[in-house]
């Protein structure tokens, strides 16, 4: 790949790549350094890129690797609890009232989405961002992250469940009243009357 082709293709997606780095590194202030290091590293290895393959996905590999190494060095600032969530439990983390009216619910926690994302483990976050921001298939995510496809699915399910759980927590802190609580209150009033 020629130097100019490389730069042109990266520039085409640079905002998306940068956003991914910003949301994947634990300390956002490292995003610029990580982004630069990843792009320069990809540039040095550009002759290894196979033509007719996905350039974006190839760049994501470099971005992710750099994010991993920076996060490893910054492990102490991680917000992510080192908890393993059983797949069956991911359903339990879907708080029913959140799905009653997602828009109303989000009014209470919209500003906490990025904070909630910070509580996901890096693999969960990477899989979630590659899926939701990058629009990659499970197989493509597996290739980028170099982890098996079933594990990608697991990380994705856990990441989504944790995200909702955290958002629910923030929403409640901001005055959101869970439906179950409303029902309980109604029940108490009915009983009294």
């Amino acid at each position: 790949m020629l130097d100019d082709d490389f730069l042109r293709q990266v520039e085409q997606h640079r905002h998306e790549f940068f956003a991914f780095v910003q949301r994947t590194v634990w300390d956002e202030s490292h995003a610029e350094d990580v982004f630069s290091a990843a792009i320069l590293s990809a540039y040095e290895k550009r002759h290894r890129f196979c033509a007719n393959t996905n350039f974006r996905a190839w760049i994501y590999k470099f971005l992710l690797n750099k994010c991993y190494s920076v996060n490893r060095r910054q492990a102490h600032v991680s917000l992510a609890p080192d908890e393993a969530l059983a797949i069956a439990d991911t359903q339990a983390h879907v708080v029913p009232d959140v799905l009653e009216d997602p828009d109303a619910f989000m009014e209470y926690c919209d500003d906490k989405v990025v904070t909630a994302l910070g509580h996901l483990r890096i693999e969960e976050r990477a899989c979630f961002l590659l899926r939701s921001l990058g629009g990659y298939s499970y197989q493509e995510i597996a290739t980028i992250t170099e982890i098996p496809k079933p594990t990608v699915m697991t990380h994705l399910a856990r990441g989504r469940a944790k995200l909702r759980q955290k958002l629910h927590h923030y929403a409640c802190e901001n005055g959101y009243v869970p439906r179950t609580a409303v029902d309980d209150a109604k029940g108490a009033i009915d009983e009294r009357s």
Binding site: H15, F17, S36, I39, S132, L133
Partner: peptide, 29 residues
């Protein structure tokens, strides 16, 4: 509802992500 919720989450993530600064891109160049 799950789709809608995720849509909102992703929109928010996008909105909170700053674009790649031009100065950074020039520096890389």
């Amino acid at each position: 509802a799950e789709d809608r919720l995720e849509q909102r989450i992703v929109s928010r993530i996008k909105a909170e992500s700053s674009p790649c600064p031009d100065s950074l891109w020039r520096d890389i160049g």
